[in-house]
Structures are given as structure tokens and as C-alpha cells.
């Protein structure tokens, strides 16, 4: 079967892979580029666990053809901050206990980063709307909303 060459920047690093025409970005990230931090929840756009930034915009990797990322920049939770230098959002999620099982967290961080990039000081309604594509089955969302609100405040001060 025909394969195509995909070249992209993943968290600042130039990478390439041979991919199928209909393969989604999620499958390529996890299985060919080693980006296991991108989670496979539903694989049909319902849960947001695979959210990544594609040229700065938050999208579901499962609803994006891998080849549509050709020549583009993909940022995952690992590109937003590192263990040594976490992003204020990542620190805030830890401080507020906004993580329980942790499966939704990579997508939550990506969506909340995209939210703060557009609206630096969101109110609670805007925060809830900003993460409305990301399902969490542990926290009941309150701690996540508080973590995002606090990160925005800390960034401001």
C-alpha cells in the first residue's frame, strides 16, 4: 500500500515518518514518533485526550490526518513545559490536585494553554467552555477550573 513521507516539528524537534494516506495524527504520534503523552481515549473526537497544538491551535489529533500536519509544528503537553521548567498551568494543576488518574491531563493542559493564549484572564464560564472538549471522569472538573483560574492570576501578577 502507498505510503507518504511526513515531516513535522514535534515540540521543536524535526522528525519524519512514512505514513498511510488515511492514518490519523494520533496513531502516528504514538506509534511512529514515540509521543505516548498524547493519549488515545475514544479515537473519534469525543474525549479530547489526544489534544495537541497544531501551529498553535488546539485540535484533536484523532480527527486530523497525519499528512495534514506535514510541514507544521505540533506541540504536546511535553512541549508546553518540562519537568525542570514546568509551565504555570502544569504547576497549578499539581498544586490544586487537578489530576487524579491523569489520563485526561495532557489534553486538559493543551486546551487550557490554547485558552490562555486567546483569553489571558478568562472567567469561570470561559474556562468551562475552553475545556468543554475534554472529558475528565475523576475530578468533577472543579479542581481543574480552579487550577486554570489560578494559573491565569499568577501569570498576571
Amino acid at each position: 500500500m502507498a505510503t507518504y513521507k511526513l515531516e513535522l516539528k514535534l515540540n521543536g524537534e524535526k522528525l519524519s515518518a512514512q505514513v498511510l494516506a488515511h492514518e490519523n495524527l494520533l496513531s502516528v504520534m504514538r506509534n511512529k514518533l514515540g509521543a505516548k503523552e498524547v493519549k488515545n481515549g475514544c479515537n473519534k473526537g469525543d474525549c479530547g485526550a489526544c489534544a495537541v497544538l497544531l501551529d498553535g491551535k488546539a485540535v484533536n489529533a484523532c480527527l486530523t490526518l497525519a499528512l495534514q500536519a506535514n510541514g507544521k509544528e505540533v506541540t504536546t503537553v511535553k512541549g508546553i513545559g518540562t519537568e525542570d521548567q514546568p509551565h504555570p498551568l502544569q504547576e497549578s494543576f499539581v498544586r490544586h490536585g487537578a489530576i487524579q488518574c491523569g489520563f485526561c491531563t495532557p489534553g486538559m493542559i493543551v486546551s487550557s494553554k490554547a485558552l490562555l493564549d486567546t483569553i489571558p484572564n478568562p472567567d469561570r464560564r470561559q474556562i468551562r467552555e475552553g475545556i468543554s472538549g475534554n472529558l475528565c471522569r475523576c475530578t468533577g472538573y472543579n479542581k481543574i477550573v480552579e487550577a486554570i483560574e489560578d494559573a491565569a492570576l499568577k501569570r498576571k501578577s
Binding site: 473526537g45 479530547g48 488546539a58 485540535v59 484533536n60 480527527l63 486530523t64 486546551s111 475552553g130
Partner: peptide, 9 residues
């Protein structure tokens, strides 16, 4: 429509 992730696409 949908949510911010799908509205971006």
C-alpha cells in the same frame, strides 16, 4: 457547534 477542539477544524 461541538467544542473548541472541533471548532478549530
Amino acid at each position: 457547534l461541538g467544542n473548541p477542539l472541533t471548532r478549530n477544524r
